[in-house]
């Protein structure tokens, strides 16, 4: 199956079909999620109304890590099998992941001010998340720093694979160190400890963000494939003239 969809033409045909579907799923899930998040769900007994920030903060943080792992995996595929499409997926994911990381940091800051009394604290979770943001920026800058596109792609791929070590650090930082940041309450071995009334909007927003990611990914990969075609045609033209 992997080889089947590695063909750019099949990939394009598949994505053009999936593109409207992911858009509709994203709109519906985020719309419904916002209604539950802002109206239907109760305030937390400890955090009162500010708990509503969770519904945009936590999915953004999940997506930030998911996007990074996606970049690292497709970079590994690109390095081992030299597949152009894997590179394009990694490149297209980077700005989306960077945006989600920025949102996780910014909304976390807006949540931290009323709850902890400070916009920012230097604890393990926040610091490792900030490093993730810098890794995204470094990846994007390195990708574009070479005159030869394929060199940039390979260098950035290696960087992304090295940086993947940061992902378990982010995940477990709240367990390994005593931090202000609260530990995970949804992804746990013995089930989530969050009340269903809060789990519904959280899950809806998470599904919505995921669908949004795929929609954006399909748009951006199509654009990158077009740009690749343009580049090839220009090279052919200069060769024939």
């Amino acid at each position: 199956m992997f080889n089947y969809f590695a063909n750019p033409f099949r990939f394009l045909r598949l994505t053009s079909k999936l593109q409207p579907i992911t858009m509709l799923v994203a709109l519906a899930a985020i719309g419904l999620g916002l209604f539950y998040a802002l109206v239907e769900s109760p305030p937390d007994y400890q955090q009162s109304e500010t708990v509503r920030i969770m519904y945009v903060h936590v999915p953004a943080a999940w997506m930030a890590m998911f996007c990074y792992v996606t970049i690292a995996c497709s970079s590994a595929v690109a390095l081992i099998w030299r597949h152009m499409l894997a590179n394009i997926i990694a490149k297209s994911t980077a700005p989306i992941g960077a945006s989600f990381t920025f949102l996780a940091l910014a909304t976390g800051s807006l949540w931290g001010k009323p709850m902890w009394g400070a916009w920012w604290v230097w604890d393990a979770r926040l610091t490792s998340m900030l490093i993730l943001f810098f890794l995204y920026l470094g990846y994007i800058v390195l990708y574009n720093a070479f005159d030869d596109q394929s060199r940039g792609a390979r260098a950035a791929a290696i960087l992304s694979i090295v940086g993947v070590i940061n992902i378990p650090i982010i995940k477990f930082s709240v367990d390994w160190w005593n931090t202000l940041h609260q530990p995970a309450s949804v992804i746990k071995i013995n089930g989530p400890t969050v009340h269903p009334s809060m789990l519904t909007p959280l899950m809806l927003m998470a599904v919505g963000y995921m669908a949004l990611y795929f929609w954006l990914l399909f748009i951006r990969t199509r654009a990158e494939l077009n740009i690749n075609k343009v580049r090839k045609m220009l090279i052919q033209q200069t060769e024939t003239h």
């Binding site: 916002l34 509503r52 945009v56 910014a106 909304t107 807006l110």
Partner: peptide, 15 residues
């Protein structure tokens, strides 16, 4: 939003 309007709407608006 129980006095936290700026933070909550700020977070949603920014997203």
């Amino acid at each position: 939003m129980g006095g936290y309007g700026y933070y909550i709407w700020g977070a949603f608006g920014l997203s």
